[in-house]
Every structure is written in structure tokens, then in C-alpha cells.
Design a protein around this nucleic acid. Structure first.
Lengths: 230, 230, 230, 230
DNA sequence: GATGAATGAGGTTTCATTCAT
DNA sequence: AATGAATGAAACCTCATTCAT
């Protein structure tokens, strides 16, 4: 393209209709997560995507729409990544739980999209509509999925009976916090948290907590009455 | 105009000047928590404190200083509220833990100042200095305090041995999340979480988790269920 | 600047709450009339009013509101100026008509506010709401007033019968055109129109037209020439 | 991509290239008249002409040139339409006048190009050069033409002597106003004006005005001295 | 101390214009 | 010839900050 170079000057712009939206969303995601909604200048988004300011407006009507698109995009990514999880239902519930947590971290928490949590936390007051969307599409499905695994464990006598919906929230909290931490205090904190160790601690703690009291686990299977389906 | 003024007109502001800064900080806290740093207009802060915009500048050099002051103020409140906790060291570690969590919620999480967590999460990237301060003055002391109680429990054989620093983080996460939730998705969510029940679930889960494996199983079976009704 | 100079710097701004809106409206009127709505930059309005850009926004929510206010303000000025005319009903209808036209020119057509006609003409498509307002508050009342005078003349036998509403429009047209011309082609045109002469021609033409066909022809021949010298 | 293209697809644009500029000018005229110069987006012009934005620039160097071309084009249309009128000089001056007015309305005032008047009125300040052009090519020729007819009438004793140049302006005003009205307040106004009736009123009024006072018209022919040549 | 009118830098948004395809 | 993605100057508007009263 520039090899023969009679033209000199590199082309002022390059036509890349297909790729653009994704590039813009990626740049926007980075900055929104980093600086927050208001703190993100569209100039910077454009610059990071190596595009002029005006180009943004070819793809997104305004800053708010860009924001919504970023969230939506991240969400579908999340869902796509995690969708297949639901089916996995063989093996011990303990193994399932461990796997679920690992996957969560790998596919979401540790992803750039994980920063979305922080963003949504901060901006849900200003964008209730999107908060609602995120709640419906991400949080509640995830709670439901985790809830199923726990209920399964209870039914099979692997776990002691618990108030599943609450328990799920309690169990989810450290995961989300890990994500939040990474994008907030993480960079300020002197001693970094090792995610693997943190996650291990968290899973171990909850498996310990969920383990049925008595020594003879086989006996208990029948006693766990269906706890709080949703 | 000024001739008659001496007489009639009851003084428009009857507030003690002492109270001013506190009122301003309270107003600012509310708005910062609600709208975020950038989303908060000093106009609104002034209006909420029923003060003119210029007055703000008599007490705070600029928006950033106001923000810092808000955080600092909230922090000292927190610390003051929780400081005496540390001394309390009689009774079972379980009781101590329960009490600590209850107090945390009552004195901080459920306080307006609890919104600070959300704020710091969102803005720590933009104000690393304050994030650092919050980390040093609030988070780490609290982690340390909780760590002491856990270590005490381990030492006294009440708890199984754990990696205290990690465990503390895992245990703290649901608390913080409760606070965050209240100021973020809470208002959007259809079914509200009952904090007491949530906290009970969390404490029970961790006490179950921390309980030494084979410590007289018959005794403990009952405790895992329902404590902390409201 | 540094001569007397302890004080130096003239005050950056001066408090003039009362006067401001009027000054701003005047500046805006000038520019809107001159450049049209879109062609007028708020910066320029501010500059002409010797005020900073932001100050405009203390008084008017946005450009459109400023525009509306300019029109509204001009309209009330017009109405105020011309209101008393309606009462005037003594003397010959011819004299009344002459007077009405003179006053129209003096109080409106020749006023800065007269440029409003051009503005409304140009922008009525973009601001139908205001166009409607102008129509209702200015144009139709004026048509009605003129119509009354003509009807009076017809009733008293001074004028021949005509289709008053149409006739009024025809008669009004040259007046409005004079105003329009002044703010449009006027400055481009080599030979300027003398307004007094133009108005005289117009009034004479219409009085000649309105004169009943065979009313004592000998008497009236002189009146058709040159009245209204200036 | 280009392999299959050879076959199917009927050519998307089947227009003769000759027609292009005219179509663009027509679209531009519509929009300029409707929204004004600044209010017209080139995007919209292109869209209305069912052409891409870039294509506009193949035919017109920029927006201003497009505008000029629109005016020029309209003007030549006008002139072409009305040119033959000048020659027509048989019959009574009254008939000539009536015909001239009718033709004016049919060929110009009632044409889309009639909106040009409004446009020029509004934009002459911003485009003095074009205003000058319009003045020279349209307005003054038309004034001259009308003036000739009136002078002819005066010379032949059909009309009373008047200050022709002024009289022409006065007589022209209602015509132009009709055109302006149609593109400005017309759409807002509740009761529409019937153009034919309006024009009839106007012509009748002026013929009545121009009719020589005395019963014996033949006598007067000499007395009207050539009034105000240009 | 308190006020609030005034300021202007800086952000968002628009749109005429360019140019590789 | 035609396209339409890309550009960036310039407009509108906001809001933290200042300072005469």
C-alpha cells in the first residue's frame, strides 16, 4: 500500500466499516472502566481508537448511547462466554461449584469486561434503565445458575440446607469484589491479592460451610427439604 | 435600604457558623454518593445545604478538596464509631464476630457514610491519593481488626486454621457488597434484600465454615440454622 | 493601565442584574436581524453585549429561548407603541389612514424591531410556534386595526366599498416590504429608497383607489400629488 | 464480491447524467426555501436528490456555490419565463397590467422558485454578492418592465401621472408579499389567502388608483411629464 | 461571613468537506 | 461517475471558580 510511496503521506483515514464499532466499543470500555462515565472524554475514546472525534458519531448517536452500547456489548460477551455453563451438570456439586467459580473468573471477572461491574455500580444511579438491564441480563441469571448448583447439592445431600437466594448473594459477593478491587483499590494497594489464592480461599470456605454437619453424608440426602426455589 | 434594615427582618441565617462545614459535608456526601464525583454540581451541593454557591468556597478550596474532606470526614466518623470495638475481647470468638458484623452494619454499612464505599470504588482511579488514604485508614484497619478476631478464634481452638488475610477479605466482601448494593442496584431491584437476613446468612455461613471439623458434632447442629431473626 | 495603578485592572465584570436581560436582548435582536438565526453565534451576541458567553445562559436557557425572548420582547414593544392608535377615531378616514401609516413607520417599520419581520419571515418555518405567536399578536391585530379604519371610511361614504380583509393585506404589503427591504436588499441597492416618499406614494395610491368613483371630481384633483414632504 | 456482480443487479442509477445537476438544484431549492441556508444540511439535499453526499461535490464546489447556483438557476428560469412579456405591447395598458400580474404569479410567484424571494430576503445580508446579482437580474428588470407599462399608460392617457419608480415598488410589494407569505406564515395561518382573489383585489385597487380623475381621458395625455427615468 | 452575578476553559455535538475505493 | 467513511473546525452549552457587593 505504502510500499511504492509516490503518495507519501499515509492515508488520512482508512475505511474499516465492519471493524470500527468493535474498536470503538473496546476503547470506550477501557476508558469508561478507568475513568468513569463523566470522566471519560469522547476525544480520548476517539484517540484511543485512533479515530477522529467525529467518527464516533457515525456509529453512536451520543455519549449516552455509546455508554449503553458498551454495556450491552459487554453483557452479550459475558452471556455468550458463560452460556454453556448451565448445561454442565455431571459430577459432584463441589466440583461443579469450583468449576463455576473458576470459569467466572476466567471468562468474566478477569476480563476487561469485568470492569463493567465497577462501572455499573458507580453509574446505576445515573442510568437506571441500564442498571435494570444489567440486573436482568447478567446478575440475576448468574444468581439463578449458582442457585441451581447449590440446590442440586442440597438435594443430593452433598450440602446442608441453606436459604439459597441469600446464600448465593453471600457467595457471589467475594467474586464481584475481586473484580471491583482489581479496577479500584487494586492499583493503589501495596500488597496485591493473588486471585487464585483468593478464589481458592473463598471456595474452600463455602464448601466447608456447606458441608453437612454429620460425619455420615449418605444418610442426609433425603432430609434437605427443597429450599427456596425461585 | 440599609436604614430600616437594622430593625425588622429576622436574620435569614440563624445557623451557628460552627455547624456550616458539617452541613456542607453532609450535603456533599449525599450528592457524591448519589451522582458520583463528576455528576455532582457544586450548585446542587450549595442548594441542598441551603447556602449560596460562593459560601462553599469559604470552607473548601475547590471541588476536589471538598471531596477529600467528605471522605476524610466520613472516615473519621467510621473510625470513631468502630474504634472501641477493638478493645472488646471477652466472650467467645463467635459472639465477637457476630457483634463485629452487627456493629459494622449499624455504624457504617447502613449509614449514609456507607455510600462512601461505592464512591471510593468508582473514583479511586481518579483520586489515587484519596484511595490510598481510604485504604490505609479504613480498609486495612478493619481487615486487621477482623483478622485479630479470627486469629484469636484459631488460637483458642474455636476456629479451624485459615489463611487469615485472605479469609478476612472473603468475609468482608459480602458486607461491602451489601453497602454497595444499597447505593447502586438496590433501588432498581424488584425484590429488596433484607439486610438482617443477608447478614445472618453471611455470618452463619462463615461460622459454619470456620468451625473446626470434628468438634463435638452433636452440639453444633442447631446453631447453623436460624439465628438473628428480626 | 498601570498609571493610577494600585487598583489597576478594571473590574472583570460588573453586576448589573436588572439591565442585563434588556442589553442581551438588544444585542441579540441586532444580530439575529442581521445574520439570521443560525448565522448568529452566541459568542457574538455576548461580545456585542460586552458580556461573557456564559452570562447569556444565566438569563436564557439556550439559543432558541433567547430567540423566542427576542421576538416576544420586540412584540410587546410594538404593541405597547401602537396600542393607543386604536382609540384615535376622530377626523376624516383619510387623515386617519395617513396617520396610521406614519405611526407604523415611526414606531415599528423604522425601528430596530422592524427587522423582526424579516426574521420571522425567514424563520417561521423553523419556529412555527413563534410564527403563530407573531401572527396572532402582531399581524392580525394590525390587520384588524387597519380594517376598522377602512370599514369606517366605507360606512361614512368616504371610501368606495371594498373587500376589506383582502384590501388590508394589499395595503399592508408595501409597508412590510419597506421594512424588509431595509434589512435585506437595502444595503445592496445603489439608489436608496426614500421612505417618506415611498410611503407617500403608497398612501396616495390607496387613497386614490379608495376614493368613491364620481365624488365631486374637481375638488380632488390636487390631492393626488405630493403630500407628505419631509 | 466482484465476480458475481457482473451479472444480476440492475444498475442502481439509471438517471442520465445530464439530469443530475438539475435534480440536485431542485432538491437544494426546496430545502433552502424551506429551512433557510444555514438550516439546510447537505446531507438532506443529497438524500432528497437520492444521491450520495459526495456526489454533490462533483457538481458544486461547496455549499455556497450550490446556493449561488440555485439562485442563478431560479433566476434564469424566471427570466426565461417572463422574457417574452416585454415584447407584448398591444392592447390597453390596463389589460397589459392585468396580464403581467397574472403571468408573474403563474410563472414565478406560484412556482417553487418563488420561494427564492424569501430566501434572498433572508440571506442577502450574508451573501451581498448574490443579493446584488438578484437585484440586477431579477428585481430591477422586473421593476423596469412594470415601469414601462405604467409609463406607456400614462403617455397614452390611460393612467394618471405618477412617480413611476416609486409606484412600481408599491405595486410590486403585494406580489412579492404573496410569495413570501406562501413560504412563511402561510402554513401557520388559519385562514388561507386565495391568491386569485388577492391578486384581483390588488390589480383592481391599482387600476382604480391609476385611473385619471376626469371623465375625459384623452385630454390628459400630454400633462404627465416623464417621471423619473432610471 | 455571605452572596450570586460573572467568567471562560473545556466538554459534547454538528456538519461541510475530503478522498480512498 | 459515484460512494460514504472519515475528518476537524466551530458551534452550543456546562459548571467550577472568582470577586464586587
Amino acid at each position: 500500500m505504502s510500499a511504492t510511496a509516490r503518495t507519501a503521506m499515509p492515508p488520512r483515514w482508512e475505511r474499516r466499516k465492519e471493524a470500527r464499532p468493535a474498536e470503538l466499543l473496546a476503547a470506550a470500555l477501557d476508558l469508561f472502566v478507568d475513568k468513569g462515565y463523566a470522566g471519560t472524554r469522547l476525544d480520548d475514546v476517539a484517540a484511543r481508537a485512533q479515530v477522529s472525534k467525529g467518527t464516533l458519531y457515525l456509529y453512536f448517536a451520543n455519549k449516552e448511547e455509546l455508554f449503553k452500547a458498551v454495556v450491552r456489548e459487554s453483557v452479550v460477551t459475558l452471556i455468550r462466554n458463560s452460556a454453556e455453563q448451565a448445561a454442565v451438570a455431571t459430577g459432584s456439586s463441589e466440583a461443579l461449584l469450583r468449576q463455576l467459580v473458576d470459569t467466572w473468573w476466567a471468562e468474566f471477572g478477569n476480563t476487561q469486561a469485568g470492569g463493567i461491574s465497577k462501572l455499573m455500580m458507580a453509574e446505576s444511579g445515573n442510568f437506571p434503565e441500564i442498571a435494570r438491564f444489567f440486573l436482568d441480563e447478567v446478575i440475576e441469571p448468574w444468581h439463578a445458575l449458582l442457585g441451581q448448583v447449590i440446590d442440586r447439592g442440597i438435594e443430593r445431600g452433598e450440602f446442608r440446607p441453606v436459604q439459597t437466594p441469600m446464600y448465593v448473594r453471600v457467595m457471589t459477593a467475594p467474586l464481584v469484589m475481586l473484580s471491583l478491587w482489581k479496577h479500584s483499590f487494586g492499583p493503589c494497594s501495596a500488597q496485591a491479592i493473588d486471585p487464585q489464592q483468593y478464589l481458592a480461599t473463598m471456595v474452600d470456605a463455602h464448601l466447608a460451610s456447606l458441608r453437612p454437619p454429620q460425619a455420615s453424608p449418605s444418610r442426609q440426602s433425603a432430609s434437605g427439604r427443597k429450599s427456596h426455589k425461585r
